[in-house]
Amino acid sequence: MTIRIRVPYDERMSNGIRIEVNGEPRGFTGETVSDLLHELSLTTDRVAVELNLEILDRQEFARRRLQQGDRVEILSFIGGGAPRCRNHEEGGSYA
């Protein structure tokens, strides 16, 4: 079931909608996930997008429209083996 929320025309034009991206609230005047990635200068082939906990296929980026209150997570690969061991970071060494 889709619940449609009416957004006053002038408000949409001036401020866009409010969404949350990677935990930070922000305004958004575009329409789709692709628009958001473009706005953030992110290359679509290197990121994963989770929209309200649903992981999107890349082909969906251009189709999925964002709505007021949506929570978007954008992730990509970073250097990693494993997180640092706490002891290690505290400088504790053995032997």
Binding site: N22, L40, L42, S76, I78, G79
Partner: peptide, 17 residues
């Protein structure tokens, strides 16, 4: 590699790939 949130405040940041 690890998977983490993209830094959206500093877009100049380079990508590992």
């Amino acid at each position: 590699v690890a998977v983490r949130r993209v830094n959206i405040t500093d877009r100049s940041k380079e990508n590992l790939l």
